[in-house]
Structure formats: C-alpha cells, structure tokens
Amino acid sequence: MAKNLSNLRAPKKANTGRKRVGRGMGSGMGKTSTRGHKGQGSRSGSSLMRGFEGGQMPLHRRLPKRGFTNIFRVEYTVINLTRIADLAAERGISEIALEDYKKLGLAGNKKALIKILGTGELTTAISITAHRFSKTAAEKIEKAGGKAIVAGGVTVTAAE
C-alpha cells in the first residue's frame, strides 16, 4: 500500500504524554505511584549514589585500576608528508602556514598543535610551518628544496 496523506500515521509511542504520577487510581499509576511496596526506593527523599548496587561492591570499585593519566601531556595533530604532497599536487601550494591547516582540512581547529611526520615522498619545494617536525620529515622537505619552519620563526635543518 502506497504512503500518501490519507494514510499517514505517527510512529508508535510518538504521541504518548508525560507519566503523571500521584493522581489517583484512575490514572493507572495510583496507590504506590509507580514506586512499588516498601524498600528504600519507595521512601521520600530517597536518592542513591551513581553505580549503587544494593550494598554489593560496585563495578567501578571491583575493577583494577592501572597506570595514570599524565595531565601535562601535549597532543599533536600528526600529518604525513604524503598528504601534504597530494595537496601540493592538487592545488599547487608552495607554502603552508599555521592558519592553512584548518582551511585545507588537515587539522580540526586553528589552535591545533601540528607535527609533520616523514611518511611518504615530497617532490615539490614547499615551505612548511608547524610546531614540530620529525627528523626524516625535515630531511625530506630540505631534500625537495623546501623549508621546515618551526612555529616561532626557527628553520629546522636536518642536522639538528
């Protein structure tokens, strides 16, 4: 049967209203008001901590804790030379500044810290500005005739 305006219906349970508790027997939720009989959950003011399992040792305390999280860790967005080489071939780019990574879709946001890795080959001379370079990346960029510039104005040489 084809769907048209004459036989459209809302999905099941799309039009159910809010559960109105404590409104007498006619509501279908009378007497105990969906709280059941006796017990902690039936009392007023009852609230249990997250993960409470009725006195049983909670799961988050039963599982072993290992290692630690370094709060001073610095996350870099890593970019391989293959991606830069592909973009250079497609768009004819000769220079990549820090503002360009977001525009080119290489980084998630403008403030991302960028590290260039040396996977792949670079054939065109490109001046690349980033926060970090791997040794192989700096070597390959220089070999292709480009410059590896660390954000802040320092040019990285392969010897460093």
Rank of each mutant, 00 (worst) to 15 (best):
Y76E: 02
Y76W: 03
A97R: 13
M57A: 14
G39K: 13
I141H: 04
P58W: 13
L8K: 09
N15I: 11
A14L: 09
G22W: 11
A137Q: 01
T123Q: 06
R66K: 10
H60G: 14
A2S: 06
G51I: 05
L98Y: 11
K13L: 12
N4H: 02
K31Y: 10
G55T: 14
T155C: 08
G145N: 07
E75P: 02
V156C: 06
V78F: 10
N70F: 04
R91L: 12
L59C: 15
D100M: 01
K13G: 11
T129A: 08
L106Q: 00
T124M: 07
R9T: 14
I128N: 01
S134V: 07
G118E: 08
P11R: 08
T77P: 00
M29D: 04
A2M: 03
G45H: 07
I126K: 01
R18K: 13
V156K: 07
K19L: 14
A125H: 04
E142H: 11
N4V: 00
K135T: 12
K31R: 12
K115N: 03
K111T: 14
T32D: 13
G26C: 15
G51D: 06
K65L: 01
Q56P: 04
R23I: 15
R91Q: 13
I141K: 05
G105R: 08
L87S: 03
M25Y: 15
G146D: 05
R43W: 00
R66H: 08
G17A: 14
E121G: 05
R73E: 14
K143H: 09
T129P: 02
F133P: 02
